[in-house]
Design a binder for these strands. Structure first.
Ligand SMILES: NC(=O)c1ccc[n+]([C@@H]2O[C@H](COP(=O)([O-])OP(=O)(O)OC[C@H]3O[C@@H](n4cnc5c(N)ncnc54)[C@H](O)[C@@H]3O)[C@@H](O)[C@H]2O)c1
Ligand SMILES: NC(=O)c1ccc[n+]([C@@H]2O[C@H](COP(=O)([O-])OP(=O)(O)OC[C@H]3O[C@@H](n4cnc5c(N)ncnc54)[C@H](O)[C@@H]3O)[C@@H](O)[C@H]2O)c1
Lengths: 252, 252
DNA sequence: CGAACGCCGTTACGCGTTTCACAAGTTACC
DNA sequence: GGTAACTTGTGAAACGCGTAACGGCGTTCG
């Protein structure tokens, strides 16, 4: 895997690494994007409950991060809340979504429509209008041609053609480990830009391609290792920062 | 001194962050454990090909990390290779496994035996003798009582009892998001120590419990975000460190 | 035989991220 | 009006972690 270092593009040197780059394009690290995605879900749920404003430490508590982290993340994307009302849920949400979702819809390819693939498919079906799993690919003749959760499964032979036709730039890889690298190669050839990989194999792809490795094996083995240690989660956890533990949620 | 100036060397908190703790128990970071799990799989495959020795830069290439990283990781766990032969696959593997696997078998509980749960089950079935998914739990009456991949599915009502009986300290959480926190609470009550969470919800558990969050939604949204950026993963990749790019694999 | 090479172990360093801490602002209440 | 109690925003320290670099040591070849 490629670790999880951020992606800052430092052109010169010192430079304003945080905040917005001059071209309006904010430079956001990988981890920050992941948290923003989480904040978005939380705020979305929150809006359903009629909440209109929220403080950083409240959102932090929901997200399981520190309050300073929340404020910093919002600073990175250039969103400001009122000093005493906290963050306005609607505008905050809009600000995050304008960054995470693009202006146009992005289609995703799912390579390997097995158990895991189907689970992912079901989970994402119709959840984000601007992020749609638009095509499946497999080698199993029994699956090719069928439509699962509104997603048509193609043959792997058609991968490059379909990906090009639909302008797909994101792929989810859920094939058996042995065929993972070959499938990744095919995806790269067809011009993929981002890859979410579920195989246990570290893929070799060009540096321009973003890869996120969801290594379930490592996760479980890590869990097993730390289950034997005295303490579970040594590093960061709930930063109280300010405010009491009690009456955390009067919330308007 | 490390950073810039020796400011606070307070023994209470600064502490020896790296290296081994004095009690022979190595202090290994979460990320290092994850990489060791990866090395282990790679070395295991490698052994199948008859390879007996491997250099740090070769293993690094396979794992997609830098050679210095591999050497440091092995230093952390106290394994040394021969200066000129590289690392001996068998002994290295034994060293990693003695750290990752414990002395005794660890049983794992799978909570939520749906599509995702079944996929995980199939993936781990009989793969690690010392890490076994020993019990499933679900609320669906159609699933309770059945045996899937050699794993008997119990009712959620029996969770605390079965977990206690089997001495389970590790759990995989794959239930619908709405019920995730309640299931986590039940697991914590029954004395769980580690949790691999697949729901999109940030769980609130005591600090002693290790939690690894596999957030597929964030992963995909991050992938979508970076697919729109100009470059994908610019920073470090293949650490050449030394040695040429060509003839990377003469290998014995 | 010795010198040059290649790899390992280790230490020091640098970078990215997180947290601390405080100025500035806003509201509410006396 | 004044002040007390909250916020947010943000510079700067602290921290975690990966990388560069150097010494050491076997091997190999001149
Ligand atoms: N299930 C997990 O939780 C888990 C954990 C770790 C890793 N993984 C990995 O995820 C992958 C998928 O797991 P799964 O449970 O869905 O397996 P699965 O066997 O149910 O599904 C694999 C699918 O890939 C298809 N396929 C096979 N070869 C292919 C190829 N060359 N090109 C395209 N499609 C191909 C198969 O037809 C099948 O539909 C596996 O690599 C597994 O190791 C899964
Ligand atoms: N599938 C993915 O890739 C993906 C991605 C992100 C998140 N998730 C999450 O993973 C979870 C499982 O996904 P899935 O596709 O397997 O869903 P699923 O519906 O196929 O399986 C859920 C299982 O949990 C059981 N269940 C329901 N309530 C329960 C309870 N209170 N206690 C115990 N078991 C209960 C159900 O009977 C079912 O068997 C979901 O929360 C989903 O959001 C999955």
């Amino acid at each position: 895997m490629d670790g999880d270092i951020a992606l800052s593009k430092v052109p010169g040197k010192g430079w304003a690494d945080r905040a917005v780059a001059q071209a309006g394009k904010p430079v956001v690290s990988r981890k920050t994007v992941g948290r923003l995605s989480l904040y978005r879900r939380l705020l979305d749920n929150l809006r359903g409950t009629g909440t209109t404003h929220i403080y950083s430490h409240q959102l932090a508590h929901l997200a399981g991060v520190s309050a300073a982290q929340v404020r910093r993340d919002f600073m990175v994307i250039g969103y400001s809340g009122s000093p005493n009302r906290g963050y306005h849920v609607d505008t905050c949400l809009a600000s995050i979504e304008s960054l995470l979702d693009g202006a146009t819809r992005q289609d995703v390819a799912l390579v390997g429509v097995g158990r895991l693939g189907r689970s992912v498919l079901a989970h994402f079906a119709g959840r984000r209008p601007l992020l749609r799993i638009a095509a499946g690919f497999d080698t199993n003749p029994g699956v090719i041609g069928t439509t699962i959760e509104g997603c048509l499964v193609h043959s792997m032979d058609d991968l490059e053609r379909v990906v090009a036709e639909k302008g797909i730039r994101i792929a989810i890889l859920a094939v058996p480990p042995e065929t993972a690298q070959a499938a990744a190669d095919a995806l790269v050839r067809s011009g993929i830009r981002s890859l979410v990989d579920f195989t246990a194999v570290p893929l070799h792809v060009p540096d321009e391609v973003f890869v996120d490795h969801m290594d379930i094996t490592s996760a479980l083995e890590s869990a097993a290792f730390f289950a034997r240690q005295d303490q579970g989660t040594p590093p960061m956890d709930n930063g109280v920062d300010n405010g009491s533990e009690a009456d955390m949620f009067p919330m308007i």
